[in-house]
Amino acid sequence: MTETEKIIEISFHGRGGQTAITASQLLAEMAYEKGFADAIAIPIIGAERRGAPIMAFTKVSKHKIIRTYDSVKNPDFMIIFDTSLLEMPRIKETIKEGVTILADSPIPINRDGLPNNIRIFIVDATGICIKRGFMHSSGPILNIPMLGAFGKVTGYYDLETIEKVLKKVFGESKIAKNMAVARDAFEEVKEVK
């Protein structure tokens, strides 16, 4: 399988209320808007509550139709909304050689026990949300800054695409606030060695 035919698999790990499920949906929309041939968002839904660990997946493909509904087992990218989740064995064991991690964290992540051949990016999404007042009833709305940072890390879509999709999904009225946090994260995300 050539690189362009490969389906790119992304996993989201967050806690109930951190808006990771919506992030998986928005990522599918952004990639599709930017020209990917197909995209699917797959939330894993049970009886989760605020604060419980939750998972969601997105698969995107540049040139072929994605003919599967199954969950992601070997992600190419992991988007971590809460770095404490990285300590959970079932999440830790999906971190394999070659994976790229994007985490909401103001400080570098502890690499102990992680494979060598992985890339880690961090962005202080929580800090950005607090600074910009981008909050809902129980905390910061992390999905928009995380997706802004992910666009920068991968180059799959740009700020213009984010704006287009968010306008379509949430309407014009909230676009300024959304774009402020997306832009901050796009600019601030950095790789840590």
Binding site: A28, Y32, A39, I40, A41, I42, P43, Y69
Partner: peptide, 8 residues
């Protein structure tokens, strides 16, 4: 599988 996943 179909009700809650999203596709174009």
């Amino acid at each position: 599988i179909l009700s809650h996943t999203s596709k174009p």
